[in-house]
Design a binder for these strands. Structure first.
Length: 154
DNA sequence: GCCAACGTTGGC
DNA sequence: GCCAACGTTGGC
């Protein structure tokens, strides 16, 4: 079992949207090779996801989700009408992949980027080092444990 | 709205 | 295969 952090712009799709969805949400449109490699090669059903709000007033980890299927081709790359269309991705040889996630929890206490940066225990987090611009990134078991515990607390 | 960081593209 | 130009992300 592994852990990940997914970024989402709350104006576009927030933790509340995920919670309200009821059914699994297809996480497509990832167009970055490093993120693609995580999706295709490492993400597995049952893995935990920290849900992070980016490009907003208070960037923060706001809840958790669960990956609920194996990765498969990102269908939006085949759709000419989609903003994610990519002529170089084919069904025979997909360039981009996606998974479904389902809502697990909304934090009582969101953990802001500011707090993440100030916390010595989280100084090795991908997000505040190399991964500032990566929309899907790995999280260690220790980071997951620490963050989900704090998020669930009042 | 600005700009730093950094990924991608394309000419050579 | 290098690297300059360009585009995007995302915090502030």
């Amino acid at each position: 079992m592994n852990y990940w952090l997914f970024k989402s712009e709350p104006d576009d799709f927030s933790i509340n949207d995920l919670a309200a969805a009821g059914t699994p949400t297809r996480w497509n449109g990832i167009r970055n090779y490093q993120a693609r490699n995580f999706i295709r090669d490492a993400l597995a059903e049952g893995d935990g996801v920290l849900f992070y709000h980016s490009s907003c007033k208070v960037p923060a980890i706001v809840g958790t989700a669960i990956i609920c299927c194996a990765a498969s081709a990102d269908e939006s790359a085949f759709d000419q009408a989609s903003p994610y269309f990519d002529a170089k991705s084919t069904r025979q040889q997909p360039r981009w992949y996606a998974v479904d996630i389902r809502f697990h929890s909304k934090f009582k206490t969101p953990i802001t980027l500011r707090e993440l940066k100030q916390d010595a225990q989280l100084s090795t987090m991908y997000l505040i080092n190399k991964g500032a611009r990566l929309s899907i990134q790995p999280v260690s078991a220790a980071e997951w444990q620490y963050i989900t515990q704090r998020g669930a607390a009042e």
